[in-house]
Design a protein around this nucleic acid. Structure first.
Lengths: 266, 266
DNA sequence: CCGTACACGATAATATTTGTTCGTTTGTGT
DNA sequence: ACACAAACGAACAAATATTATCGTGTACGG
């Protein structure tokens, strides 16, 4: 074997920086691949990766590294988030077809749009404005241009509300907005229980060209405390296939632009 | 002092400029290659590189240098995060005595204030305003009233900047502000490398009754790119016990309100 | 002409980086 | 649950880089 000790084609720090680059870009990197790329032994790469991990830049795994996940620690899993995850995921997947490159997207403080954010994280050339900390967390480690609407922290939903958050939202002319809420009723429309959140949602809706409602079937035909917006205002209402067929028919007859997403991703 | 405009073919430090150009263009440069290129010994090149590094133009590594721009700058920021943790923790502990119930506290986007936030999380009846995502994360699960200054996400420091963030900060009359930066110099004061962050820090300082600088000893007597604020503006400058005694004396003579925190939990 | 200052080169001691070996840990398939 | 293979990390050895120190030559001012 050719044992070139002490010198290699790359400077030590140069290698570190380039590995970091690769991980940032690709999401992951393998020890064997990096060793081949830089023409070093696997041991050298391992030492590099250990160093990068010590600095908190990457997360070590068996065989390689992955990019460090979002900037925020894992939130206490919200109760709502554990319910109907499959449905919300299907809805998010379906809703992705409404997003195109160049869009300015507003995302509200609902748990459903968190699922949507996971998909948006893979896009490029999209700007997202949100008051949702969990969405910000997901998109912080993505190529998406992100604007966070600051304001008072509302711990119930890990979101920011109040005049400052509203001021931020009012600066933008969105092309698309995705909102959810606690209940959807044919007469009352979208409803929610937090006055602050309602105001934010309304501002987002008012400033957007296209409006999309994401509502899993468990919310439909229930009532909440405060009206957000009538269903007629939305360009699409995305729900899941567990929706009661009778309810679905009623809504279609009322000209609600319903889109039903299959729970089994399709 | 060096007034030798003699008749030699090159100015005394022509080499330095040429080396810097190469590094800027190539990203890296090796000692051996440079020695061959200029027809000098490796020793001479090393002296040149040491000089360039002292000026903050390049980063030295075994075998050569790498450029200081782009990737490496972010890399350095992240490196700082894990270095001097003990010092930063001691500084944060010491700084806690400046915070009283009822305070409106501004925290900037430095890593040092993250340590401070960990302590603040145990307080009640304190309002915190910050553009630092990591601070927001820590305080989200605390009884502290939290306002997050929204705006464009700056991924290098996990912070928000820009007009929106600035607008938020300007709404408040803080009682205390805690900031840090990349370097602290007796003449130039606090310095940083990001224009956006500098602006945020300055707004926070301007809108606060009391101002505190948190700077671990590794930052003192170094220089950065942009001036944030002279040291005379601060009500206290908290550093750690690893500060050079001579430097400490110099600063005290210059009437800098220095507070030295013991690294071993005081 | 001489002494000082300065840049440069040379050498030896020291530090850093890297590859290899080998026992241990981790992940995976049966 | 078990065995097997891949990956890992500690320890050592080898190659190179760096630092400290000294000596040389040249330019400059008196």
């Amino acid at each position: 074997m050719n044992t070139r000790l002490g010198s290699s084609a790359f400077l030590p720090k140069e290698r570190l920086v380039r590995i970091y680059d690769i991980v940032q870009k690709e999401g992951t990197a393998r020890v064997a691949e990096l060793a081949a790329l830089f023409g070093t032994s696997a041991m050298t790469i391992r030492r590099d990766l250990t160093e990068l991990e010590a600095k908190g830049l990457v997360v070590r795994t068996q065989g390689g590294v992955v990019a460090r996940d979002g900037i925020l620690r894992d939130y206490d899993v919200d109760v709502r988030q554990t319910y109907n995850v499959e449905e919300k995921s299907a809805i998010a997947k379906e809703a992705m077809r409404f997003i195109q490159p160049g869009d300015y997207v507003a995302l509200d403080a609902s748990t459903t749009v968190v699922e949507l954010a996971k998909h948006i994280a893979n896009l490029r050339d999209v700007t997202v404005v949100t008051n949702n900390f969990m969405v910000a967390n997901i998109l912080a480690s993505s190529p998406v241009e992100l604007v966070f609407a600051g304001g008072y922290l509302r711990r119930e939903a890990f979101s920011t509300v109040g005049p400052l958050a509203e001021h931020t939202v009012m600066q933008f002319a969105f092309t698309k907005v995705f909102v959810s809420g606690t209940a959807v009723d044919l007469d009352a429309g979208l409803m929610d229980n937090s006055p602050d959140e309602v105001h934010m949602k309304q501002l987002m809706l008012r400033n957007s060209k296209k409006r999309y409602l994401l509502a899993d079937s468990s919310k439909i035909m229930h009532r909440g405390l405060i009206k957000v917006s009538p269903l007629a205002e939305f360009d699409a209402v995305v729900t899941d296939s567990r929706i009661d067929p009778a309810v679905e028919l009623t809504m279609r007859k009322a000209n609600v632009p319903l889109v039903v997403a299959g729970v089994r991703g399709g």
